[in-house]
């Protein structure tokens, strides 16, 4: 549950760091995460959004912790989705938009 909260918080913070009208969306990862777990959805807490890489690592670690005991395949796919968005994010050097 704590991991779920942390994952949601980090993903929300990551989404908040994207510029408006971004093609990339961490929200989709968030929705996929909600679909992949049947836990009650916790409230996202504000986290420090200064270091994006740290946010990414936190989110990924939290989902990995969830995957240890949740439905594995769906959560692994969530991780894959997060990685995809993150790599695009890095590739576009945080412009938030694909070329």
């Amino acid at each position: 549950m704590e991991a779920y909260r942390e994952a949601r918080s980090s993903l929300a913070a990551l989404q908040a760091t994207l510029p408006d009208f971004s093609t990339l969306s961490y929200t989709e990862v968030l929705l996929a995460l909600e679909a992949a777990t049947d836990l009650p959805v916790p409230v996202a807490v504000p986290v420090e959004s200064g270091d994006r890489a740290r946010l990414y690592v936190r989110a990924r670690t939290a989902v990995e912790r969830l995957a240890e005991r949740g439905e594995r395949l769906a959560l692994e796919l969530v991780i894959a989705g997060l990685d995809a968005v993150w790599s695009d994010d890095v590739r576009t050097s945080w412009a938030g938009d694909l070329p």
Binding site: A67, E71, R72, L73, L75, E76, L77, I79, A80
Partner: peptide, 14 residues
């Protein structure tokens, strides 16, 4: 099937 595929993904990940 889902379990095996999920474990595969996890194996690749870690």
């Amino acid at each position: 099937l889902r379990d095996a595929l999920g474990r595969l993904l996890a194996v690749q990940r870690v």
